[in-house]
Simulated scan of single mutants.
Amino acid sequence: MLPLGSLGDRYGRRRVMIASLAAFGAASAWAAWSGSAAMFIAARAAGGIAGAGIVVMAMSAVTVMFAEDERSRAVGVWAGVNFLALPTGPILGGWLLDRFWWGWVFLINVPVVVIALVAVVALVPESRGSDRGRLDLVGMTLFGGGLAGLVYGCAEAGTRGWGSAVVSAALLAGTLLLIVFALWQRRLTRGLPAAPVSARAREPLVDIGLFRIPEYVWGTVLAFLCSLAMIGVLFTLPQYFQAVLGVDSIGSGLRLLPLLGGLAVGATGAEPLTKTIGAKVVLVGGFAVLGAGLILGSATSTGNGFGFVSAWTSITGAGIGTVLATATAAASQPPPVSQAGGEAMIDAARADTVVEGSE
Score class of each variant (00 low, 15 high):
231 I>D: 03
296 L>S: 14
256 L>M: 12
285 G>H: 01
251 G>K: 04
272 P>W: 09
274 T>Q: 15
232 G>V: 01
202 R>C: 13
167 V>K: 07
288 A>M: 12
277 I>D: 02
283 L>V: 15
198 S>D: 14
212 R>G: 14
166 V>I: 10
246 G>C: 05
185 Q>S: 07
237 L>W: 03
205 L>V: 11
293 G>P: 09
173 A>H: 01
285 G>F: 03
175 T>D: 08
228 L>M: 12
282 V>L: 06
260 L>S: 10
212 R>W: 01
262 G>D: 11
157 A>N: 07
267 A>W: 01
238 P>V: 01
160 R>L: 15
199 A>K: 02
164 S>H: 05
275 K>P: 02
197 V>P: 11
217 V>S: 11
181 F>A: 06
212 R>C: 06
166 V>T: 14
166 V>F: 13
176 L>K: 00
217 V>G: 06
217 V>P: 01
256 L>R: 05
225 L>W: 04
279 A>I: 06
278 G>W: 10
168 S>A: 15
237 L>D: 04
165 A>Y: 08
236 T>A: 11
169 A>V: 07
165 A>E: 13
172 L>V: 13
199 A>E: 13
270 A>I: 02
231 I>L: 11
268 T>H: 12
164 S>A: 12
273 L>T: 05
218 W>E: 03
201 A>W: 06
202 R>M: 15
272 P>F: 03
229 A>P: 00
254 L>S: 07
269 G>V: 02
219 G>V: 07
224 F>S: 07
178 L>H: 03
279 A>N: 04
180 V>T: 06
221 V>A: 15
203 E>Y: 11
226 C>Q: 06
250 I>R: 11
206 V>K: 05
159 T>C: 09
219 G>T: 05
260 L>M: 15
182 A>Y: 04
162 W>R: 08
272 P>I: 02
253 G>Y: 03
273 L>I: 02
255 R>A: 09
197 V>E: 15
258 P>K: 05
193 P>A: 14
250 I>W: 12
276 T>V: 09
